[in-house]
Write a protein that binds this DNA or RNA. Structure first.
Lengths: 228, 228
DNA sequence: GTCTATACCTAGATAGAC
DNA sequence: GTCTATCTAGGTATAGAC
């Protein structure tokens, strides 16, 4: 830490160490997300994570001094991964149908490629977001609100049918996430050990159709009177 | 315990005890479902349940010898409550739109009235159904398959559009359940402490519209060629 | 059926040598 | 940074008196 000696190599060595530390911490978090998803927060022991990551329990605690710190890092990574792909609705000037299709595709793809990330997040929310509620409030809620705004601009411009934008977004999230969160039950119904690529594609198509039908202007010719 | 004395009152007293025991066990399970939902299986201690139920930890273990036994009882009760309301699709001869609307209403209502039941079940499934997978396979899957059959009969009869019946059911479950499982996040977005009755009603209406639009024959004028 | 007491274990976390 | 050893709390579960 103290740069007392005037070696030119010193800074780079320090830097490399920092990089290695970052890598190792990231690797640990990547291993942990799966175990947290399968066992829940309290059901997960640091010993189990350490073993899966190939280091000792005490060594892991050198990098993450508490279990909660590791858990929060895991959720941070989940949100980073997730939100980076979820700016799709930002292109509000484009055709709503195309934007929405891309959005749904991105979310289903995330469910397929990062099922554990989705599940850890889901369990946290279902349990009442006691450990991570503030972060959700600061990072997820503004994004959802922005999406809702886009919907409402589309509605105001007459580009899509007058749906309830808030709940439509809720439903898009619920549907796309379910392909990660409830895949165990879906696989049971489908009689498979796990979902196949085609299952995700079928699901995606079903979601796209439902949303497209819901926002279709043709379907609501006499609908400004409300209440149907 | 030994019925040595020939009193006529003995049998009835035993019976009453059994009834009381049943009541008490049911009451314990009812208290437990909430704590399991908030803390997860491992995060829940029997001491916490016992305290909430107003008896000692050891006394609780007289009725439920293990934590897992209590957990399974809780999930049994959840399924009993749940499946009893979910036979709505059985009336396949009636108008699909009315049957589906009733089905969705029943499920949203369950989410509103029994949010903890839904959440305990969701957490179990998300974690991979390691403790309760067999019961889900035996009790839930057949019901879902039956619902899918009804859909496919409707499609074959040309009464609804040729949708993917399996995934449509998945989506109906995902959407309706989300009003219990993700209500914490929804409340955050809506800026409330918890969802109001109107929020559930808005959600229900949104789901109904999406499903109605998806199965509408008008929306798929040239769609009978489809592979279904 | 209900209580007190306790066995037994695992978990998270800390201390200190190297 | 990594190891051995250890502390401590809290959890499930059991034994036995009443």
């Amino acid at each position: 830490m103290p740069p007392k000696i005037g070696l030119a190599a010193a800074p780079t060595r320090i830097k490399r160490r920092v990089i290695n530390r970052d890598r190792l911490e990231a690797d640990i978090a990547e291993v942990a997300v799966r175990i947290f998803a399968e066992c829940g927060y309290e059901g997960t022991s640091i010993a189990a994570i350490a073993e899966a990551a190939g280091l000792s329990k005490q060594n892991l605690m050198y990098y993450y001094p508490t279990k909660q710190a590791l858990y929060e890092r895991v959720l941070d990574d989940v949100l980073d991964d997730w939100l980076a792909r979820m700016d799709s609705l930002a292109h509000e000037e484009q055709d709503p149908h195309n934007v929405l299709r891309a959005y749904i595709q991105a979310k289903v793809r995330f469910s397929r490629e990062h099922p554990w990330a989705s599940r850890v997040y889901a369990m946290e929310v279902i349990g009442g977001a006691k450990l991570y509620g503030e972060q959700i409030h600061d990072r997820v809620v503004p994004l959802l609100r922005k999406d809702i705004d886009v919907f409402e601009k589309w509605i105001a411009a007459g580009r899509i049918a007058p749906v309830n934008a808030t709940h439509l977004i809720f439903m898009i999230w619920a549907m796309t996430q379910s392909y990660a969160d409830f895949s165990a039950q879906m696989a049971l119904v489908l009689g498979r050990k796990q979902l196949t690529r085609k299952d995700y594609d079928d699901g995606e198509e079903t979601i796209v159709r439902m949303v497209m039908a819901a926002i279709s202007l043709q379907a609501w010719p006499h609908h400004h009177a409300q209440t149907e």
